[in-house]
Amino acid sequence: MKSKVIRFLGRFLYIAPMAAFVSAVSPNLSAFANDTPSLWLGLVNEKTQSLEWPGSGFEIIFTGKAVSVTLEDSGKNSLVVENDGKLSKLQLARGKKTYQFVADGGGQQHTLRLIRRTEKMFGPTTLSSIKTEGTLLPGKKRNRQILAIGDSISAGYGIEGSDQSCKFSADTQNQYLTYPAVVARSVGADITTIATSGIRVSPKFPSDVTTMPFVFQQAVPKGRVFDVVIVNLGTNDFSEKTKPDNFVNAYAAFMAVIRDQSPDAMIYAALGPMLTDSQFSEASAAIEAAVKLRHQRGDGKIRFLALRTKAKGFGCNWHPNAETHARLAATLTKTLEHDLNWKRDAAN
């Protein structure tokens, strides 16, 4: 079988990729029972074994020399590959295909993580089977759980684009490089992302079901509890000419829904970094008013967080690129250190 090296994930990671993959399975690989991974990552439809949300994925902990994974996809999605901590990008083929990942070190224990870079609009990526000549081992969730709720910024829209003139595409999107994902890795937390480009908080009409408050209640299973929730919404509400009259109440009501789901979570009502100064002033005032309403109702674990930083460059359509996201991540990491005493590189 002829193999080829998976190409580099991007210049902002500063880490070389590792293994090669081949499109056919070696005949000595045997299927695991139930074909389920060691651990699901992010927001996954476990019944259909489908990855749809950015940052969703799975972890395979195994002994042996190689593992193969069969996935079905539209051909537009791509995955970040963490193979024993070494990073690469896997562009998925259209239809059902098998990808083999080769590990170094013989029969030692290995960890393979496959994480979706792209958002829901590009269709699901469905796991069909996992095979190896070794043994599958169970995984364990980290002690710290972060939920990121947002729009195109949190979804990684255009983050790998060359400059602001490029258009939106699946190829330039990468949730792995977004500021919430960077922060989660730096503090040793698991990250779950629910983000959709163009999404709003306030409905445009009474029966509008395209807002994040509606989508959140449909997408996030009951019982999923988080330690930190980062909400970066409002950009699409306030980037239009008319200010939404119902934003404050809609935002406060959404915070109440999040609080019901995660009673002890620290909630950050964040904003930035794409609005103009005047738009940011309007939007931040509205969000702070919503936060004040929550405080008046006895919720003391919610605060406004301004994510404003001098851009180090732009991705597609003026979205923040990876370097700007890294600056936003530094702001959020310092906030978590101050508020929760979450140290960097914590072992969890």
Rank of each mutant, 00 (worst) to 15 (best):
F254C: 08
A253T: 12
I267K: 06
M266S: 14
N249W: 03
F254I: 07
D260R: 15
A250Q: 04
K241S: 12
D245E: 12
I267L: 13
M255H: 04
E240S: 10
M255W: 04
T242R: 10
I258N: 07
D245S: 06
A252N: 08
F247C: 03
M266D: 14
I258V: 15
S239M: 05
Q261N: 11
F247W: 04
P244G: 08
D260C: 13
A250P: 02
M255Y: 07
D245K: 02
F254H: 03
P244L: 03
T235C: 11
S262R: 11
I258E: 04
A252Q: 00
S239K: 07
Q261K: 14
M255A: 06
V257P: 05
A252T: 02
D260A: 14
G234S: 01
N246M: 09
A256E: 10
M266V: 13
N236K: 00
D264Q: 15
E240N: 08
N249K: 08
E240C: 06
A253L: 10
A265R: 13
Y251V: 01
M255N: 05
I267Y: 05
N246C: 06
K243T: 10
D245N: 08
A252K: 02
S262H: 09
M266Q: 15
T235V: 15
K243S: 07
E240A: 11
P244T: 04
N232V: 05
P263M: 12
R259W: 13
T242M: 09
S262T: 14
S239H: 07
I258T: 07
A252I: 04
Y251C: 01
D245R: 01
D264I: 13
N249T: 06
A252R: 00
D264G: 14
P263I: 12
P263C: 14
M266I: 12
V248T: 06
N236I: 00
D260I: 05
G234V: 01
R259H: 15
A250Y: 03
Q261S: 12
A256M: 06
M266C: 10
P263H: 14
I267S: 09
D237S: 05
N249S: 10
N236Q: 10
L233V: 06
A253V: 10
I258S: 07
I267M: 14
A256R: 11
K243Q: 14
K243A: 11
Q261A: 13
N249Q: 10
N232S: 14
N232C: 11
A256G: 09
A253N: 10
S239Q: 10
Y251L: 01
P244R: 00
A265Q: 12
D260F: 08
F247M: 01
K243H: 06
N246K: 05
D260S: 14
S239F: 06
N246T: 13
F238N: 04
N246S: 13
A253K: 09
Q261I: 07
G234K: 01
E240V: 08
N246F: 02
L233K: 04
S262A: 14
V248Y: 01
T235G: 04
T242Y: 06
T242L: 11
M255I: 08
I258R: 05
D260E: 12
D260N: 15
D264E: 15
